[in-house]
Amino acid sequence: MYCRLGGRAVMKERIIQFGPDGLLSGVLRESAAAGANGLMLFNAGVVHRIGAHRLNVKLARALHEPSLRFDLSGQGESPAAAAGLGFEDQAIADIAAAIDALENEANVDGVVAIGMCSGADHALRAAVVDPRISGVVLLDPYAYPNDDAAGADLLARAADPDRWSRKIKSLMLRRDDVGDTASGNGRRTGGGDEIDQGRPLAPKEEFAADLTALVQRGVRILIVYTGLVRRHVSKPAHFFKTFAAYDFEGRIDVEAMPHTDHTFSTIASQETLIGRVDEWLRRRSSAACDRRAS
C-alpha cells in the first residue's frame, strides 16, 4: 500500500511489451515510490488503450500512482493471441499478465483495475479470480431496472417543456418525430435490457455474486453510473435498493452522474470523474495507512 507522504512522486512513462510471448503492448507509468498501488487501464469496447476521449491517459496521468495502460489481445497495438481462448478468458489472462508486468516492472503492491463498459466487465471478472486485484473502479457496469429511478426519469421528462414542445410539433406535423434529436450514432440511452450496443446483460444474481465475492475478500469497489442507465440508477440509493438483499450499502461506493453521457464527452464530466476517482483512491490509501499505523 502506498502511503502518501506529501508532494507528488516523479512519474515517467515507458513503453513495454509483456505477456507470455511478449506480444501485449502497454505504456507503464512509473513512480520512484516502492510498494505503491498499481493502476491498470485497458480497452473500452473497440477503443484502443488511450480510452474514449483519451480518458485512460488522463486518468493515468492525473492519479499519481504507477500505472499500466495496455491493449488486450487483438485490440489496439496488441496482436491477437495464439492461445485459442475465448474473448473473456483471454481478457482475464491478459489482465493477469499485466499485473505480472506491474509487479515486476513497477514494484507495486496491489492493483486497482479501472474499466469502462465492457472493460468494467473484464475488470470485475478478473478481480474475482485474481487476488492481487485489491480494488476496482467500474464505469457503467451492468445496471438493472429500478422503479424509483424509472419514476424519477419519467417525472424529469414530463417536467421538460422542450419535450412537450417537440411532441406538440410532432402532432401538428402528423409525424412521429420532428427530428430535433440527432440520430445515427447507433445508441439510444437509458432504456432496454442492453446497456451498450448489443452488450448482453449478465443475470442480476451473477453480477451480485461477483460483487459479493469481492466484498468478502476486502476488495474496494467504486461504481460510477452515467446517464446511459439513468432509468435504472440515477442516485446511489437506487443501486442499493436494487441489491437490497445483498447488503452492499457501506461496503461498495457508488456514484451516479445522470447528466453525463456514457463516454464522458465533455471536459467538465471528465474532470469530475477524475476528481472522484482520485478522491476515492486517496480515501482508500489513507484508510489502509491508518490501519497500518495503528
Binding site: H53, D162, T181, A182, N185, R187, T189, L228, T266, I267
Partner: peptide, 30 residues
C-alpha cells in the same frame, strides 16, 4: 459535438445548441 451530446443525453439539439458557444473550447471530448 452538439449532435453527439443530443443523441447521447437524449436531449433536443436546440437545447444543447443554446448551451454551446459559437467559439467552442472543446468538441467530442477533446
Amino acid at each position: 459535438h452538439i449532435a453527439t451530446l443530443s443523441a447521447a443525453l437524449d436531449l433536443p439539439q436546440s437545447r444543447i445548441e443554446r448551451e454551446i458557444p459559437e467559439e467552442i473550447s472543446e468538441a467530442l471530448g477533446f
